[in-house]
Every structure is written in structure tokens, then in C-alpha cells.
């Protein structure tokens, strides 16, 4: 098992903030919009440096999405910023009609996704956003795993013409991806080559998958660990090639099982290469208040859950 040493602990949202600031310097067409969460979204640097291209919309997310769609018509590249809950479920029809169906070049950037938002509780802990967004035609769906990758993804999506949903989170997590790693939409990253089980993880669960890989290695199990940062379009080739090799699969994500990464991979494999699959995800429940760590344990999204899922998946190989 390849060893990963994080350079530091950083929040993914700060990666977004830095990436956005970089874009502001590079591309005069990049415009940022925020619905009264500039500090939480780490958009302060952009707002201070480029006040003419920063639009504070106030607590009016539907209006923000519409304005963003309108800005694209004049050739701008708008990045909207608010929490994942308010970026998706609250404005689903606005995104569906004015952004996805109209195929507008809007970048919907969403922080505080999932249980790791923590103490605010289930009202804010959206676990359905990947599903909502991946169902929309034209929409790209990305869930980054650490600070460096979030920064790289933020910069990369400005070059993609069309709607993108970029999901990241609140807590500080190990920052381990290479600082200079280019972000390629739809290109999975193999973190460890293995032969016994494939672990496909996204977002904060990528690091936990690496930790699970260490534990599995101690048990003599050689896990292949793949970072699926882009849920849509899914890197089908990477999934199938790995499943051919290992013959059993685990998926891991901070999201509902319904509509998430696991569901995308299961759909692909059931059609093209039926393979035993175990899913580490929230199973049809809302979250609750608690620390991120406590919640990840209670809702069975922790390292040990990935290990157990891997053992179970291996046991199901024919």
C-alpha cells in the first residue's frame, strides 16, 4: 500500500476560495456571486480584490441562480457560492430550467455538503445533492477530496463550457493530493494499485479509503483505491478496468446511498460487468447535530466501515 503523507490539514472550501481568487486574476470574465455567506465560502479575497465582479445577492438563492444564468448570456463565467443545501434543493427548478436545460456556463459551487457540516444539524446537512445534480442533463458533478484538489478543480471548471456542480465541505481534512496536480474533469485518479478489491471513493471519504487501505494491507489484502472526483461524467473505463482486475467493489461517499456515487457505479457495473458491490453511504436517513467525527462514526461513514465493506465484498466473490 502506497503511503500518503498530508502536507497539512485544510478545509476544502479554502481551496475553492484560493482557486476563485486565482481565476479572478487570470480571467476578467470570471464573476462571483454569493448569497450572504462570503466568509463561510472563503470568497472574501475575490470580493475585496475584484469588487466590480463580485455580486452580493443577499439571502435570495433563486435570484442568484437566475442572475448567474443571465450573466452567461453576456459572456461572463459566473461562480455562485452558498452551502450545498441552498445550492441545489432550494433552487432545483431554477437550475433545471435556467441553467441545465438552457445549457448555461454557470459554476455552482457548494460548501458545507454532507454530515461534516456538523453541529448545525440536518436542516443544513444535505446528503441528496449529488443525486439531484447528476440527474440533470448537461450537468457536470464534481466532489473534491482535499484543499489542493478543490483549488485545482475550481480553476479547471472555468475552462469547461457548460454547467458544473462543484461540491466541497466545511472541516479541515488531510491535504494530500500533489499541489501541482492538474485537475481533469471525468478522469479518475488511481491512488493505490491493488488486486483484491476496488474501493471507489469521493470527497472526504477518499482519505478514509486510504486509511482503510492501510488496515486492509495489514490483513494481507491488496486494495485498489480510486478517487472518483467526478461523479458525472463517470470515468467508466477506470471503474470497469479495476473491477475486471479485482472482481469486487466498494463505494464510499458522504451522501445518501440513493442517488450517489455508489448508485452510479452499480448502474454501470450491473449493465456491463456484474460485480459484487458494497456501499458506504448514508442509508435513507437524515443527519443530526454533532461533531463531524461523531457523525461520521454514527452514520457509518468511517474508516472501519470501508474496511468491513471491503471484507464483505471480497467474501462475495464467486
Amino acid at each position: 500500500m502506497k503511503t500518503y503523507t498530508p502536507s497539512d490539514q485544510k478545509d476544502t472550501r479554502s481551496g475553492f476560495g484560493e482557486g476563485l481568487y486565482e481565476l479572478g486574476k487570470r480571467n476578467p470574465n470570471v464573476v462571483a456571486l454569493c448569497a450572504d455567506l462570503t466568509g463561510s465560502m472563503k470568497m472574501d479575497a475575490f470580493a475585496a480584490e475584484f469588487p466590480d465582479r463580485f455580486i452580493q445577492v443577499g439571502i435570495a438563492e433563486a435570484n442568484m441562480i437566475g442572475i448567474a444564468a443571465g450573466l452567461t448570456i453576456g459572456g461572463k463565467i459566473p461562480f455562485t457560492g452558498t452551502f450545498a443545501n441552498f445550492s441545489t434543493g432550494r433552487v432545483y427548478d431554477q437550475i433545471r430550467q435556467s441553467v441545465a436545460y438552457s445549457n448555461k456556463n454557470v459554476k455552482i459551487c457548494a460548501s458545507h455538503a454532507g454530515l461534516t457540516l456538523g453541529e448545525d444539524g440536518a436542516t443544513h446537512q444535505i446528503l441528496e445533492d449529488i443525486g439531484l445534480m447528476k440527474m440533470l442533463p448537461n450537468m457536470i458533478v464534481i466532489n473534491t477530496c482535499d484543499f489542493n484538489q478543490t483549488k485545482a478543480a475550481t480553476i479547471a471548471i472555468a475552462d469547461h463550457i457548460g454547467p458544473v456542480y462543484l461540491r466541497f465541505g466545511r472541516p479541515k481534512v488531510p491535504n494530500f493530493t500533489p499541489k501541482d496536480q492538474k485537475f481533469k474533469i471525468g478522469k479518475a485518479i488511481i491512488l493505490n494499485e491493488g488486486k483484491d478489491v476496488s474501493i471507489f471513493a469521493t470527497g472526504h471519504l477518499v482519505w478514509k479509503a486510504i486509511e482503510a487501505g492501510y488496515i486492509l494491507a495489514e490483513k494481507g489484502i491488496d486494495a485498489e483505491i480510486i478517487n472518483i472526483h467526478t461523479i458525472k461524467p463517470l470515468d467508466k473505463n477506470a471503474v470497469i478496468q479495476s473491477a475486471i482486475k479485482t472482481k469486487c467493489v466498494v463505494t464510499a461517499e458522504e451522501h445518501q446511498m440513493n442517488g450517489g456515487l455508489g448508485d452510479s457505479i452499480a448502474q454501470l457495473l450491473s449493465r456491463e460487468l456484474p460485480t459484487p458491490i458494497e456501499m458506504v453511504a448514508v442509508n435513507d436517513k437524515f443527519g443530526e447535530s454533532g461533531t463531524p467525527e461523531e457523525l461520521m462514526i454514527k452514520y457509518e461513514l468511517d474508516t472501519i466501515n470501508i474496511v468491513e465493506a471491503a471484507l464483505k465484498s471480497i467474501s462475495r466473490k464467486s
Binding site: 455580486i55 433563486a62 435570484n63 442568484m64 441562480i65 437566475g66 442572475i67 448567474a68 444564468a69 443571465g70 450573466l71 452567461t72 448570456i73 453576456g74 459572456g75 461572463k76 459566473p78 427548478d93 431554477q94 433545471r96 430550467q97 435556467s98 436545460y101 438552457s102 445549457n103 448555461k104
Partner: peptide, 30 residues
Amino acid sequence: ATAEHLPGIRIASGSLGQGLSVGIGAAIAK
């Protein structure tokens, strides 16, 4: 709708209430 590229149409509409926001965005872009 825009998907069929009919000249004159710049955004889909039909689900109500969205066009003023879109117009504002286009006005800011101008």
C-alpha cells in the same frame, strides 16, 4: 428553449418567476 437553437431565444422559460433574475444578470453583464 435554447436546445434547438432558435434564433432570438437566449434562455428557456415556462416555469414562472425566473426571467426577471435572468434579465438582471444580462443587464449586469452589459
